[in-house]
Design a protein around this nucleic acid. Structure first.
Lengths: 114, 114
DNA sequence: CGTTTATATAGCTATGTAGAAATATAGCGA
DNA sequence: TCGCTATATTTCTACATAGCTATATAAACG
Protein backbone atom coordinates (compact mmCIF):
# COMPACT_ATOMS: atom_id res chain seq x y z
CA UNK A 1 0.00 0.00 0.00
CA UNK A 2 1.09 3.55 -0.68
CA UNK A 3 2.24 5.45 2.38
CA UNK A 4 -0.50 7.65 3.79
CA UNK A 5 1.68 10.70 3.45
CA UNK A 6 2.03 10.01 -0.26
CA UNK A 7 -1.75 10.10 -0.62
CA UNK A 8 -1.74 13.42 1.25
CA UNK A 9 0.61 14.82 -1.37
CA UNK A 10 -1.22 13.37 -4.36
CA UNK A 11 -4.70 14.43 -3.28
CA UNK A 12 -3.32 17.78 -2.17
CA UNK A 13 -1.75 18.30 -5.58
CA UNK A 14 -5.01 17.39 -7.33
CA UNK A 15 -7.00 19.82 -5.18
CA UNK A 16 -5.90 22.80 -7.30
CA UNK A 17 -7.51 23.47 -10.71
CA UNK A 18 -4.33 24.94 -12.17
CA UNK A 19 -2.42 21.80 -11.30
CA UNK A 20 -5.13 19.56 -12.73
CA UNK A 21 -5.02 21.62 -15.92
CA UNK A 22 -1.25 21.24 -16.06
CA UNK A 23 -1.64 17.47 -15.82
CA UNK A 24 -4.26 17.57 -18.56
CA UNK A 25 -1.87 19.49 -20.77
CA UNK A 26 0.91 17.01 -20.05
CA UNK A 27 -1.36 14.14 -21.07
CA UNK A 28 -0.83 15.46 -24.60
CA UNK A 29 2.92 15.21 -24.18
CA UNK A 30 5.99 16.69 -22.58
CA UNK A 31 6.07 20.49 -22.24
CA UNK A 32 8.49 23.20 -21.21
CA UNK A 33 7.70 25.52 -18.32
CA UNK A 34 6.91 28.42 -20.64
CA UNK A 35 4.58 26.28 -22.69
CA UNK A 36 2.74 25.59 -19.47
CA UNK A 37 2.72 29.25 -18.48
CA UNK A 38 1.07 30.67 -21.62
CA UNK A 39 -2.45 29.21 -21.32
CA UNK A 40 -2.82 30.45 -17.75
CA UNK A 41 -2.81 34.11 -16.86
CA UNK A 42 -0.36 33.36 -14.10
CA UNK A 43 3.26 34.34 -13.74
CA UNK A 44 6.12 31.98 -14.57
CA UNK A 45 7.24 31.69 -10.93
CA UNK A 46 3.71 30.74 -9.92
CA UNK A 47 3.67 27.92 -12.47
CA UNK A 48 7.13 26.83 -11.34
CA UNK A 49 5.79 26.61 -7.81
CA UNK A 50 2.85 24.48 -8.94
CA UNK A 51 5.30 22.26 -10.80
CA UNK A 52 7.29 21.81 -7.62
CA UNK A 53 4.15 20.66 -5.81
CA UNK A 54 3.37 18.21 -8.61
CA UNK A 55 6.95 16.96 -8.64
CA UNK A 56 6.94 16.51 -4.87
CA UNK A 57 3.82 14.38 -5.22
CA UNK A 58 5.56 12.33 -7.90
CA UNK A 59 3.05 13.36 -10.55
CA UNK A 60 5.59 14.93 -12.91
CA UNK A 61 9.27 14.50 -13.57
CA UNK A 62 11.73 16.96 -15.05
CA UNK A 63 14.23 16.48 -17.84
CA UNK A 64 17.14 18.66 -18.83
CA UNK A 65 17.72 19.73 -22.40
CA UNK A 66 19.93 22.76 -22.85
CA UNK A 67 18.26 25.55 -20.87
CA UNK A 68 14.90 23.80 -20.95
CA UNK A 69 13.57 21.64 -18.13
CA UNK A 70 10.86 19.63 -19.91
CA UNK A 71 8.03 18.40 -17.72
CA UNK A 72 6.63 14.89 -18.11
CA UNK A 73 3.50 13.35 -16.66
CA UNK A 74 4.15 10.55 -14.16
CA UNK A 75 0.84 8.83 -13.68
CA UNK A 76 1.83 6.02 -11.32
CA UNK A 77 0.75 7.83 -8.11
CA UNK A 78 -2.68 8.27 -9.66
CA UNK A 79 -3.08 4.49 -9.64
CA UNK A 80 -2.73 4.47 -5.86
CA UNK A 81 -5.16 7.35 -5.49
CA UNK A 82 -7.67 5.60 -7.70
CA UNK A 83 -7.25 2.43 -5.72
CA UNK A 84 -7.93 4.24 -2.46
CA UNK A 85 -11.09 5.76 -3.88
CA UNK A 86 -12.05 2.44 -5.43
CA UNK A 87 -12.50 0.93 -1.97
CA UNK A 88 -15.65 3.02 -1.75
CA UNK A 89 -17.10 2.04 -5.11
CA UNK A 90 -19.78 -0.18 -3.60
CA UNK A 91 -21.12 2.82 -1.71
CA UNK A 92 -21.60 5.09 -4.65
CA UNK A 93 -22.88 2.24 -6.80
CA UNK A 94 -25.40 1.55 -4.05
CA UNK A 95 -26.53 5.16 -4.09
CA UNK A 96 -26.80 5.16 -7.87
CA UNK A 97 -28.96 2.06 -7.58
CA UNK A 98 -31.17 3.89 -5.12
CA UNK A 99 -31.33 6.75 -7.60
CA UNK A 100 -32.24 4.32 -10.37
CA UNK A 101 -34.98 2.84 -8.26
CA UNK A 102 -36.28 6.29 -7.47
CA UNK A 103 -36.32 7.27 -11.14
CA UNK A 104 -38.11 4.05 -12.04
CA UNK A 105 -40.66 4.67 -9.31
CA UNK A 106 -41.26 8.15 -10.62
CA UNK A 107 -41.72 6.88 -14.15
CA UNK A 108 -44.12 4.20 -12.97
CA UNK A 109 -46.20 6.72 -11.06
CA UNK A 110 -46.23 8.97 -14.10
CA UNK A 111 -47.64 6.11 -16.14
CA UNK A 112 -50.16 5.24 -13.45
CA UNK A 113 -51.47 8.79 -13.53
CA UNK A 114 -51.18 9.18 -17.32
CA UNK B 1 -19.12 16.70 -15.65
CA UNK B 2 -18.62 17.73 -12.07
CA UNK B 3 -17.83 21.43 -11.59
CA UNK B 4 -14.11 22.03 -11.21
CA UNK B 5 -14.66 23.67 -7.85
CA UNK B 6 -16.37 20.53 -6.60
CA UNK B 7 -13.26 18.51 -7.47
CA UNK B 8 -11.20 21.08 -5.57
CA UNK B 9 -13.30 20.42 -2.49
CA UNK B 10 -13.31 16.64 -2.83
CA UNK B 11 -9.59 16.26 -3.48
CA UNK B 12 -8.87 18.85 -0.81
CA UNK B 13 -10.95 16.89 1.69
CA UNK B 14 -9.16 13.65 0.79
CA UNK B 15 -5.75 15.28 1.23
CA UNK B 16 -5.93 14.93 5.02
CA UNK B 17 -5.27 11.57 6.71
CA UNK B 18 -7.68 12.27 9.57
CA UNK B 19 -10.47 12.91 7.09
CA UNK B 20 -9.64 9.77 5.11
CA UNK B 21 -9.73 7.80 8.35
CA UNK B 22 -13.11 9.30 9.20
CA UNK B 23 -14.45 8.15 5.83
CA UNK B 24 -13.00 4.69 6.43
CA UNK B 25 -14.79 4.56 9.77
CA UNK B 26 -18.04 5.68 8.18
CA UNK B 27 -17.75 2.91 5.61
CA UNK B 28 -18.64 0.61 8.52
CA UNK B 29 -21.76 2.62 9.21
CA UNK B 30 -23.19 5.82 10.58
CA UNK B 31 -21.43 7.31 13.61
CA UNK B 32 -21.92 10.11 16.09
CA UNK B 33 -19.34 12.86 16.44
CA UNK B 34 -18.03 11.46 19.72
CA UNK B 35 -17.66 8.02 18.22
CA UNK B 36 -15.49 9.63 15.58
CA UNK B 37 -13.49 11.57 18.16
CA UNK B 38 -12.37 8.64 20.33
CA UNK B 39 -10.00 6.82 17.95
CA UNK B 40 -8.07 10.01 17.21
CA UNK B 41 -6.13 11.85 19.84
CA UNK B 42 -7.68 15.07 18.65
CA UNK B 43 -10.17 17.35 20.36
CA UNK B 44 -13.87 17.21 19.58
CA UNK B 45 -13.88 20.68 18.00
CA UNK B 46 -11.07 19.60 15.69
CA UNK B 47 -13.10 16.61 14.52
CA UNK B 48 -16.16 18.82 14.09
CA UNK B 49 -14.10 21.09 11.88
CA UNK B 50 -12.97 18.14 9.75
CA UNK B 51 -16.59 17.04 9.49
CA UNK B 52 -17.51 20.48 8.21
CA UNK B 53 -14.88 20.16 5.48
CA UNK B 54 -16.19 16.72 4.53
CA UNK B 55 -19.77 17.95 4.56
CA UNK B 56 -18.87 20.94 2.38
CA UNK B 57 -17.32 18.54 -0.12
CA UNK B 58 -20.52 16.49 -0.07
CA UNK B 59 -18.71 13.44 1.31
CA UNK B 60 -20.81 13.14 4.45
CA UNK B 61 -24.29 14.18 5.49
CA UNK B 62 -25.65 14.84 8.95
CA UNK B 63 -28.78 13.57 10.59
CA UNK B 64 -30.53 14.77 13.71
CA UNK B 65 -31.59 12.37 16.44
CA UNK B 66 -32.18 13.92 19.83
CA UNK B 67 -28.93 15.65 20.77
CA UNK B 68 -26.92 13.53 18.34
CA UNK B 69 -25.95 14.58 14.85
CA UNK B 70 -25.15 11.23 13.22
CA UNK B 71 -22.71 11.34 10.32
CA UNK B 72 -23.25 9.27 7.17
CA UNK B 73 -20.90 8.57 4.30
CA UNK B 74 -21.97 10.08 0.98
CA UNK B 75 -19.85 8.41 -1.64
CA UNK B 76 -21.28 9.98 -4.80
CA UNK B 77 -18.59 12.71 -5.12
CA UNK B 78 -15.97 9.97 -5.02
CA UNK B 79 -17.35 8.64 -8.29
CA UNK B 80 -16.57 11.95 -9.98
CA UNK B 81 -13.09 12.04 -8.47
CA UNK B 82 -12.43 8.50 -9.62
CA UNK B 83 -13.68 9.38 -13.07
CA UNK B 84 -11.31 12.34 -13.28
CA UNK B 85 -8.37 10.18 -12.29
CA UNK B 86 -9.56 7.41 -14.60
CA UNK B 87 -8.86 9.62 -17.62
CA UNK B 88 -5.19 9.01 -16.91
CA UNK B 89 -5.40 5.24 -16.56
CA UNK B 90 -3.72 4.57 -19.91
CA UNK B 91 -0.67 6.47 -18.68
CA UNK B 92 -0.08 4.47 -15.55
CA UNK B 93 -0.94 1.24 -17.30
CA UNK B 94 1.69 2.15 -19.87
CA UNK B 95 4.25 2.73 -17.14
CA UNK B 96 3.36 -0.57 -15.44
CA UNK B 97 3.91 -2.27 -18.79
CA UNK B 98 7.33 -0.66 -18.98
CA UNK B 99 8.00 -1.89 -15.46
CA UNK B 100 6.89 -5.38 -16.47
CA UNK B 101 9.22 -5.31 -19.44
CA UNK B 102 12.04 -4.19 -17.21
CA UNK B 103 11.41 -6.96 -14.70
CA UNK B 104 11.28 -9.52 -17.50
CA UNK B 105 14.54 -8.19 -18.92
CA UNK B 106 16.17 -8.49 -15.52
CA UNK B 107 14.96 -12.05 -15.10
CA UNK B 108 16.22 -12.97 -18.56
CA UNK B 109 19.64 -11.51 -17.83
CA UNK B 110 19.72 -13.37 -14.52
CA UNK B 111 19.11 -16.61 -16.38
CA UNK B 112 21.71 -15.75 -19.00
CA UNK B 113 24.30 -15.25 -16.28
CA UNK B 114 23.16 -18.13 -14.05
C1' DC C 1 -36.37 24.05 36.32
C1' DG C 2 -31.27 22.79 36.88
C1' DT C 3 -27.83 19.21 35.32
C1' DT C 4 -25.73 16.42 32.21
C1' DT C 5 -24.47 15.10 27.56
C1' DA C 6 -23.54 16.03 22.62
C1' DT C 7 -22.14 19.11 19.47
C1' DA C 8 -21.05 23.71 17.56
C1' DT C 9 -18.83 28.14 17.56
C1' DA C 10 -15.39 31.63 18.78
C1' DG C 11 -10.90 33.05 19.28
C1' DC C 12 -6.19 32.08 19.21
C1' DT C 13 -1.42 30.30 17.35
C1' DA C 14 1.39 28.27 14.07
C1' DT C 15 1.99 26.94 9.66
C1' DG C 16 1.05 26.45 4.68
C1' DT C 17 -0.11 28.22 0.12
C1' DA C 18 -1.40 31.08 -4.02
C1' DG C 19 -0.14 34.88 -6.07
C1' DA C 20 3.06 38.78 -7.47
C1' DA C 21 7.56 41.33 -8.50
C1' DA C 22 12.35 41.31 -8.48
C1' DT C 23 16.47 38.96 -8.97
C1' DA C 24 19.61 35.09 -9.74
C1' DT C 25 21.30 31.29 -12.47
C1' DA C 26 22.24 28.68 -16.55
C1' DG C 27 22.81 27.68 -21.23
C1' DC C 28 22.85 29.25 -26.03
C1' DG C 29 24.41 32.04 -29.91
C1' DA C 30 26.61 35.98 -32.11
C1' DT D 1 32.52 37.82 -23.79
C1' DC D 2 27.85 39.85 -24.22
C1' DG D 3 23.32 39.52 -24.48
C1' DC D 4 19.24 36.71 -24.94
C1' DT D 5 16.14 33.11 -23.37
C1' DA D 6 14.46 29.74 -19.96
C1' DT D 7 13.85 28.65 -15.45
C1' DA D 8 14.62 28.96 -10.41
C1' DT D 9 14.87 31.45 -6.12
C1' DT D 10 13.81 35.08 -2.98
C1' DT D 11 10.79 38.06 -0.69
C1' DC D 12 6.56 39.86 0.08
C1' DT D 13 1.18 39.92 0.94
C1' DA D 14 -3.17 37.86 1.66
C1' DC D 15 -5.58 34.18 3.00
C1' DA D 16 -6.57 29.26 4.43
C1' DT D 17 -6.10 25.42 7.63
C1' DA D 18 -4.94 22.26 11.57
C1' DG D 19 -4.71 22.29 16.08
C1' DC D 20 -5.91 23.98 20.78
C1' DT D 21 -8.97 25.96 24.90
C1' DA D 22 -12.98 28.09 26.36
C1' DT D 23 -17.65 28.87 25.76
C1' DA D 24 -22.28 28.53 23.77
C1' DT D 25 -26.29 25.92 22.29
C1' DA D 26 -29.55 22.20 22.39
C1' DA D 27 -31.79 18.31 23.82
C1' DA D 28 -32.54 14.74 27.32
C1' DC D 29 -33.03 13.63 32.24
C1' DG D 30 -33.95 13.95 36.97
Amino acid sequence: MMAAQQLDLVFGALADPTRRAILARLAEGEATVNQLVTPFRLSQPTISKHLKVLEHAGLVSRGREAQFRPVRLEAAPLAAAEQWIGEYRRFWEASFERLDTLVQDMKRKENDHG
